[in-house]
Design a binder for these strands. Structure first.
Length: 883
DNA sequence: ATCTTCACG
DNA sequence: ACGTACGTGAAGATT
């Protein structure tokens, strides 16, 4: 028969470790009642990994009962130097015990004894009963219990990195037997438990003594034979302390515990209790990991629905009320994904079908296209594009729960209706990740299940459509939602559908040429290295450079030495191979990401249709995927890629307009700094103007290119949330110099300084910062104890209102622009947005109109205290349409 | 799945 | 004393 497995956990030390392991997210892990939950969460993670690894049949988690123990009676100062445990930790302990109950695990504490003693006692009992015992703790003291039957697992970092102490490992590590640990501690004392041991004896000396004498007992028996030394003096002088420390270090293995081995049977998760507990703690991810049915998660009856058929449509159309619309696709790319089902619902009934042909029904089409029938959706843009592919132009959308949830909190951006509903304590919709599975296991379930899922989506959406609008109002975000994000979704859908034409031939030619160059560079590099290797592997490259060629590594990464451009640039003059590598890197990047990547994204119509992610960034910017058209090269030779982007019709051209220094202008506006505002009003070269001011020059003509470069970097730094270190890195000056730059910058633009300080202050006081259109970003880390984490939040507080307001401005401009194009009945199409730039395709005949219209619309998007500036360019390709 | 690198504003 | 500039996405290697 297999041995019974007993797991004993030092709950006190593990909970404490768990708390600090997730201390950096302390303020993010709070349940709706304001209880901190980080230690509970991390503790549960640790339970998962123990249960998985050990598969125990018996288990117990022991806790310290209080500060007073038999050890404090022996020695008043025992653990007397422990700092006060934080309240955020204390409050979680009762819940950790509740968690244990819900997971079917016993916990126990005993007055006057520490968790260690309970564990020691049960470990010996378990051993005697023939169990295989595993002890889990954050404290190395417990390793004194190690035997062939008792393994002690000690957490090294956090709660995930573990060290397994078997007799062999213990021997290897310390060179003594586990039981000798007690005598070692008797000699060296314990700082964290605050007992002294023998003066001047630490781990090294202690071990040496034990190797020589075997035990404390023996040492003092033979101490007369020891030759005279300071050490001997200390040993004699501190004998009492040593003997006391020995007692303190000894784990009591016969504590008068009131639990028996037989009580410790591991029961397994108590599903109902655990579900309630996770709900109370707001542990959405854990709820979803539980292997339970929908019914077990919610007590409500299943959502009722009708099968939507052609005949049913008659009834449905007859009642034209507010409709909730769900168009389902399995994967992300709605430009190509097939629709697998649809559902509609009003306040009375829900209809569902997996028959996509229904979309050809004229009545259904008419209803979806009727602007007077208000619609509720989740992801307007996705829904619009999917229906557009079925010749339906969705109209009348008045609420998008995805957009609303993004505005309410940009942090939880799961983009999943089920998860969103759960965060509002609505549990009748499984998240898609769980319903469809993920990775290789992802698939569409049987029709009946799918239809129930879609009906659940409608119901959840109806719930959210009630829940979210009042919150938008409370945030003062009605305008942002109704006049910006919602109409923008339609504009973006139209841009994505239009797509931009890419000349396949141009790219293929580039692919040829670059392929030849890459092969040459590769051979050159192999020759210089003396052998072939994988040039794309930073690991192998650093082997060649830093080990074989003995170049000086300048920077470390997590896995080895960095081979980034910054490093290689500095090594350039040490070996000719570096230049070739840099060259290879640049060309390889262009080839793989842009030439080959773009060719893969080319659709049947010869165009690429990116998707703009409207609910992703923390600042309100858009992002672009599949392909990313917001990072097509422009600074280097990769710019050639832009020659393949062309207008889609003969005698049309590409036209591009961009805001000049929009972020600095917004800073000038927001801060109200007179000096900066004046510079923009007078239309000075802003970086030169800054240089003149911070270098104390009388005339802008006295500014050298290098001064301007540094001033430009400083301006950027200000926008990013300045730090002397960051600025120093960027322009290659010392930190002291950078600090002087910043000081003189703030002297010249005093209100900028004031404004940035205010933003940090505001984040501290109200927990978030805002853009001019009330886009909000919460910054819980602003209170972090960790300097780095806190500093990051402070820089974010400074940067987000600037970057985010710029995003607001161009979004408004895009909506207005689309309107103007229609109003003037222009054929011009808006195709791309690159943060501060809009790209259009236009008949050559309309270019002259655009040259006036686009800048006019863009710079009047919002009224600021200083003018906005827009610059335009056009040409046959995107390469040419760049000023 | 995560890391490293590098492209953009 | 601490060690970072803000916001993104894709490719390829490695775990």
């Amino acid at each position: 028969m297999e041995k019974e497995k007993l797991v004993l956990v030092d709950g006190s030390s593990i909970a404490f470790r768990a708390f600090f392991a997730m201390h950096n997210v302390l303020e993010k892990f709070k349940n709706p009642q304001g209880l901190h939950t980080n230690a509970i969460f991390a503790f549960d993670n640790m339970l998962d990994s123990i249960l998985k690894k050990s598969q125990p049949s018996k288990m117990l988690v022991a806790f310290d009962a209080g500060k007073v123990t038999f050890r404090t009676k022996m020695y008043r100062d025992y653990k007397g130097n422990r700092p006060h445990t934080p309240g955020e930790f204390q409050e979680q302990l009762p819940y950790i015990k509740q968690l244990l109950a819900a997971r079917g695990i016993q916990n126990y504490e005993l007055a006057n004894y520490e968790a260690d003693d309970i564990i020691g006692t049960l470990a010996r009992q378990g051993e005697a009963a023939g169990c295989q015992v595993t002890v889990v703790t954050g404290d190395r003291d417990l390793t004194q219990l190690v035997t062939d039957q008792v393994t002690v697992v000690v957490t090294i970092k956090g709660v995930s990195e573990l060290e397994y102490y078997t007799p062999e490992h213990f021997q290897e590590k310390l060179g003594i037997k586990p039981q000798q640990l007690i005598d070692l501690k008797a000699l060296m004392g314990d700082n964290s438990d605050n007992y002294p041991g023998v003066t001047k004896v630490g781990e090294k000396t202690g071990l040496k003594l034990l190797h020589q004498y075997g035990s404390l007992e023996n040492l003092y028996a033979e101490i007369d034979g020891m030759k005279t030394s300071k050490l001997k003096e200390h040993l004699l002088e501190d004998e009492d302390q040593a003997r006391l420390s020995q007692q303190l270090a000894t784990i009591q293995c016969q504590a008068p515990i009131k639990v028996e081995l037989a009580d410790l049977t591991y029961q397994g998760d108590q599903t109902e209790e655990l579900v309630e507990f996770y709900k109370e703690m707001n542990f959405q991810s854990k709820l979803n990991k539980l292997d339970i049915s929908q019914e077990q998660l919610t007590s409500a009856p299943p959502v009722k629905y009708h099968e939507l058929t052609t005949e049913q449509l008659e009834d449905w159309v007859a009642t034209p009320t507010e409709q909730t619309v769900v168009i389902e696709m399995l994967n992300d790319d709605y430009h190509t994904e097939p629709i697998i089902g649809l559902a509609v619902g009003n306040e009375k009934e829900i209809w569902v079908s997996d028959q996509v042909e229904l979309l050809a029904n004229p009545q259904l089409k008419a209803c979806l296209e009727n602007p007077k029938t208000p619609k509720i959706v989740f992801d307007y843009k996705r829904t619009y594009v999917a229906l557009y592919r079925h010749q339906i132009q969705l109209q009348g959308v008045k609420f998008d729960a995805l957009l609303a949830s993004y505005l309410l909190d940009v942090n939880d951006n799961s983009n999943d209706l089920g998860e969103l509903a759960q965060s509002y304590n609505y549990y009748q919709l499984e998240p898609d990740r769980k319903f469809y599975g993920q990775g290789a296991k992802k698939k569409v379930p049987a029709a009946s299940e799918l239809k129930q899922h879609l009906a659940n989506k409608v119901a959840a959406l109806q719930f959210l459509a009630q829940e979210l609008p009042p919150q938008l109002q409370e945030h003062d975000q009605d305008q942002l939602f109704e006049e910006i994000e919602l109409p923008l979704a339609l504009v973006l859908a139209q841009m994505e559908i239009a797509g931009i034409k890419v000349e396949q031939g141009t790219l293929q030619e580039m692919q040829q040429k670059l392929g030849v160059r890459l092969a040459e560079l590769e051979q050159d590099i192999y020759r210089q290295a003396g052998h072939e290797f994988n040039l794309n592997s930073p690991q192998q490259l650093s082997q060649v450079l830093f080990e074989e060629m003995k170049l000086q590594p300048l920077k470390k990464t997590k896995r080895g030495y960095s081979t980034s451009v910054a490093v290689l640039e500095k090594l350039k003059n040490k070996a000719p191979i570096i230049t070739d590598i840099l060259n290879y890197r640049q060309v390889a990047k262009i080839q793989s990401t842009y030439v080959v990547g773009l060719l893969h994204s080319l659709a049947q119509d010869g165009k690429v249709h990116t998707r703009y992610q409207q609910t992703l960034t923390q600042t309100g910017r858009l992002s672009s995927v599949d392909p990313n058209l917001q990072n097509i090269p422009v600074r280097s030779e990769g710019r050639e890629i832009r020659k393949s982007f062309v207008a889609s019709e003969p005698d049309w051209q590409l036209f591009s307009s961009d805001y000049s220094q929009i972020e600095l202008r917004i800073l000038a506006h927001l801060s109200g700094d007179e000096n900066m505002q004046q510079a923009f009003r007078e239309n000075y070269d802003i970086h030169a103007h800054t240089a003149m001011r911070i270098f104390g020059l009388q005339d802008i003509k006295a500014v050298t290119p290098d001064m301007r470069r540094k001033a430009k970097a400083t301006n950027f730094g200000i926008v990013y949330g300045i730090s002397d270190y960051g600025l120093a890195q960027n322009i290659g000056i010392s930190r002291t110099e950078a600090a002087e730059f910043i000081k003189s910058y703030f002297d010249q633009y005093p209100k900028v300084k004031l404004y940035l300080d205010q933003m940090v202050q505001q984040a501290r006081e109200q927990g978030y910062v805002e853009t001019i259109m009330h886009r909000r970003r919460y910054l819980p880390d602003i209170h972090a104890h960790n300097y780095n984490v806190r500093s990051f939040a402070e820089r974010t507080a400074m940067n987000t209102p600037i970057q985010g307001s710029a995003a607001d401005v161009i979004k408004i401009a895009m909506i207005n622009m689309q309107e103007k194009l229609q109003e003037h009945q222009l054929k011009t199409r808006m195709l791309l947005q690159v943060h501060d730039e809009l790209i259009f395709e236009a008949p050559t005949a309309e270019i002259a109109i655009l040259e006036k219209l686009v800048p006019q619309v863009m710079d009047s998007a919002v009224q600021l205290d200083i003018p906005l500036k827009v610059e335009s360019a056009y040409g046959l390709t995107w390469y040419d349409a760049k000023g």
